[in-house]
């Protein structure tokens, strides 16, 4: 199986059942979208960051995420800062410029909403790593199966993951083979050339992989895929009281945020 981003440790977060974590993730995601005031989302972000620290995940990952997305965060913020039609003026900058929709003022609402959006971005960016880094891939898969996603879909996920290393190897080989016949480097040259080079990678890659599909088909049917029996699992999981309380808390938090927004 391909290497996941999982970081083994024995913390509270690591011990939680993958199902309850998944539910919490979806809840936080939903709440991040529902709420639009920076203070509330800051609270949400606080929960995420606290969990990050509690799970002893590397902080430089957070730094990298912030660095990588600082451009878009600034952009999102500036758009609200300058163009939000607020009523409480903080700062007078110039006369109104109707052409770009600028009122001449920076408003309190604009600042707040811009901050809310940045915080929302950070929550959305950090929530998936938080789950993936504290849960082994196999448990995540099992959680998906237990959520009654169609077994066939879970099968596709796991099998595709186990195929991944060989396909990645092949992609590398093909890139090398194309370099050897004069196709300019994939990382250099102008955009159009670079994309044209991707044809010389993708076509042999797809066709080569499809050529191997017969072998995979045999492997799949020899493992009696689709046999009509009740499946059992190598890994069994049980929800513990902690998990139930996490799910309960998620539900309450969701209701609470719905009430804040529309209540």
């Amino acid at each position: 199986m391909a290497t996941s981003a999982f970081i083994p440790a024995n913390t509270f977060l690591h011990r939680l059942d993958a199902r309850s974590k998944l539910i919490a993730l979806l809840t936080i995601l939903a709440i991040a979208m529902i709420l639009d005031h920076p203070v509330y989302i800051l609270g949400l972000l606080g929960i995420v960051l606290f969990s990050w620290l509690a799970a002893r995940l590397p902080l430089n990952f957070l730094g990298n995420i912030f660095k990588y997305f600082s451009g878009i965060a600034l952009l999102i913020f500036c758009i609200q800062l300058f163009f939000y039609p607020g009523e409480i003026y903080l700062l007078h900058l110039s006369r109104p410029i109707p052409l770009i929709g600028f009122s001449g003022y920076i408003s309190l609402e604009g600042v707040l909403y811009g901050l809310a959006l940045i915080l929302r971005l950070i929550v959305i960016l950090t929530i998936a790593p938080l789950l993936v880094m504290t849960t082994p891939l196999s448990e995540l898969m099992l959680a998906l199966v237990k959520f009654k996603i169609p077994y066939r879909f879970a099968f596709i996920l796991t099998t595709a993951m186990s195929l991944l290393p060989s396909i990645q190897n092949r992609a590398e080989l093909i890139q090398q083979a194309q370099l050897c016949r004069g196709v300019a480097d994939f990382e250099q040259g102008n955009l159009i050339l670079r994309l044209r080079a991707s044809a010389s990678l993708l076509i042999p890659l797809i066709l080569g992989a499809f050529r191997d599909s017969q072998t995979l088909e045999v492997a799949i049917s020899s493992r009696a895929f689709g046999a009509p029996v009740q499946r059992t699992y190598l890994l069994e999981t049980h929800l513990r009281p902690v998990d139930y309380s996490l799910i309960m808390a998620s539900g309450l938090l969701l209701l609470f945020s719905l009430w804040i927004r529309w209540g």
């Binding site: 092949r170 080989l173 090398q176 083979a177 004069g182 010389s200 042999p204």
Partner: peptide, 15 residues
């Protein structure tokens, strides 16, 4: 142009 490298599997090259 100096060294030609022919890979084992021709399918890695043709498209």
């Amino acid at each position: 142009r100096l060294v030609g490298y022919v890979f084992q599997n021709p399918d890695d090259m043709l498209f």
